[in-house]
Each structure stands twice: as C-alpha cells, then as structure tokens.
Write a protein that binds this DNA or RNA. Structure first.
Lengths: 187, 187
DNA sequence: GATTAGATAGACCGATCTGTCTATTTAATC
DNA sequence: GATTAAATAGACAGATCGGTCTATCTAATC
C-alpha cells in the first residue's frame, strides 16, 4: 500500500531535518510544510523518533543509490571507480542544499551509541565502506580492504572539511591523497 | 577578574553540551549541575548562544593544547610527530567520555555557514590544519602542505568512523594510511 | 558599622514542544 | 445510496524552553 501521505511526510521530514537539524525541527513545522494534519502523522508514526528513523532510512537508500550510480557513471571501468568516488563527492558538495552528511549530523544529536538513530547512522557508514571495499576488490588490488579503509577515511574527512571548515577543495584534495594511496598499493 | 562563577558555568556547559548536544541541553539543566542561580548566568552571558560560543572557545583552547602536547610527547623528533598525530587520536578515542568532535557536532546543529557557532568550528579546524602543516614543514618534506592536507583528512575521517560507526581501530587504520602517504612523499 | 557589588531563590512570561482526543469531512468500495 | 476507512481542523494537555524581574542575602571594602 505505502500511503501517499506517509511517503510525503517522510520526504518532508527528511528535507527539514537535513537542512535544520533534528531537535531544531518541530513536528508543527513538518506538518505545516507537508500540508498534513497532526493525527495523520501520529497514525503513521508512533513518535517523532520513529519519523526520524524513517527519514534516515530513506536518506540511506536514496543517497547510496545516487552515490553508486554516480561513481559507476564517472568511473566506467573498475580501476577508474575508486578515484571516481571523489568526483562524486565533489558533485555532492556543490549542491546548493548541501548540509554535510545527515548521518554524521544525526549522530551528533543522538550521541548514545545504543540509540537506534545512532545505530542507523553506523549502519549507513558500514554500507558505504562495504561498497568501497567491493570496488577495491573489483580493481584487483593487492590489499583491497586496507585501501578501502584508507579511501573511506579520506572521503569522510573530505565531508567534514567541506561542511565544517567550508573548504571547497576538500574533494579534490582527498582525490590527490587517494591517488597516492592507490599508487603505493599497485607498486 | 574572570569570575569563578563564570568559569564554572563555562566548564559545566562545555561538559553537558559535549555529552548531550546543544539543543538537547537546557539552561535549567546547566544551572542545576553548576549549582548557580539563573540570573548569575544571564549577568555573565547575554544568551544561550553566547554561552555556547564561550564553551566552544574554551574547548578549542583546551583541546588544541592537549593535542599539541600529546603529539610532541609521543613524537620526540620532528619526523616522528606526524605519525604521532594518530597515536594522540587513539588516546582521545579511548576516553570514556568520548563523544566525537565537539565542533563537528556544533556544525551539525547550527548548519548556517554564517552562524557564529559554525564559524568558531571552522576556525578550530583551520587551526588544527595549520598545526599539522607546521609539523609537516618541520619534518622537511618536499610538499608539506599537500601532506598536511592528506593527514588532516585522514584524522577527520578517523574521528567520524570512530564516533559514528563505532570503529575502534579507526585511529590505527588512519595511521597506516598516513604512513603510506608519508612514504610516497619522501621518495 | 555602612556601603556596595555579586549571587541567591523563585515567581513569572510567552512561546514552543510532543503527543492525545474529538468531531467532522472526504473519498473510495460495495 | 450505504458503509467504511482515512484524513481533516483544532482544541487541549503537561512539560519545557529561553529569558526577565524582584526582593533578599552574602561578603568584601572602606
């Protein structure tokens, strides 16, 4: 079934949470922007936390789809895909609505490691790492896991430097570092 | 003068904001923990935002002092200091109260780039980068700025992977990657 | 001992928060 | 046209939010 109202609430919440934060975004604001009645929200979600979880799960799904598609479009052969990660990041960073990584932001607001919201964020990072590891294996590198770990760190570091410090060259700097790692891994 | 009450309020706020977040920490809670009257806070700070700024400035000062001291203790010669960055991170990550980077967390909650709180966070990251660049120059590397950029990205990535994904090996993984970068930079 | 500055407790404000409830309306199915 | 389920507006609750104000008290200085 997947009620249209429910879908629309998730999309609206996703947008507002991403742009303005979780605690800073009230239920009333979400209802106002979505144009939906209060009880419609509480019929579909038990609480605000449940709505946050739904929004994060949608974000994970949408972001990883976009990311994998973009990496594999820019990198048309297996050995071009690891560097293409950073071209994809550069695209993301240039989006007008870029507000950092929603999962880093979520972990910042829900700090308890056993909070389900923190858990979904951890899972997202692990799925991204898994994808990068797969790319590294497809590229026939000697030590794919280590290279993937390194590139993951560079990618996350780039997100932070772009968002927190406002460094517009963060993605290309990370790409340079990644190329050094890759070169060392082939030798 | 630097009133004792004022100092104590900043320290208490720093602790609570770091552990529980900024929006999630109310004025009442800070007053309760600090054991200070409401008007004492508002005599020293115009608003909650001003208190947040004071707490972040103190955190920047304390953290960078600790970081530089630790790096230079572990790395007793100039060429050992860049790798020592990641040993210092490992120490930090193992602290019982570790809750990620307070400035990344602050940027997550105050997303507008022109928000003073976001500005203080950007400044903190730039000061850390500046320090790493100084270390790279002292180590007589061919391209100290590039190496510093790379190591900064690895360090920030490690913070994210440790805090968001719970990876307890994040610091040592970052150190491995950094050593590859450093090796490539000496050849 | 009088003066002064800083800190106190606590009432109070208006706004906002998440979540509940009711009574009504809409719209699709039979 | 009757039935049924979903969505509506809006009142309401109880708590908490940041911030102001007052009246009292403490402690140091002169």
């Amino acid at each position: 079934m997947a009620s249209k109202k429910r879908e629309h609430l998730i999309d609206t919440a996703l947008e507002l949470f991403y742009q303005n934060g979780f605690h800073a975004t009230g239920i009333d604001r979400i209802l106002e922007v979505a144009g939906v009645a209060r009880m419609t929200l509480y019929n579909h979600f038990k609480s605000k936390d449940e709505l946050i979880l739904a929004a994060l799960r949608r974000r994970d799904e949408k972001f990883r789809n976009w990311f994998m598609r973009t990496v594999e479009t820019i990198g048309d052969t297996p050995d071009k895909r690891l560097p293409a990660i950073f071209d994809a990041l550069a695209e993301w960073f240039n989006e007008k609505q870029f507000s950092g990584c929603m999962f880093i932001n979520a972990s910042a607001e829900f700090s308890a490691p056993d909070d389900p919201i923190h858990g979904v964020s951890a899972e997202h990072k692990n799925l991204i790492l898994k994808y990068i590891t797969k790319l590294a294996k497809d590229a026939d590198l000697a030590n794919p896991e280590d290279v993937a770990d390194s590139l993951m760190l560079l990618a996350e570091g780039a997100i932070v430097m772009r968002y927190v410090a406002g460094d517009e060259q963060a993605a290309s700097r990370a790409k340079l570092a990644a190329e050094k790692i890759l070169l060392a891994s082939k030798a």
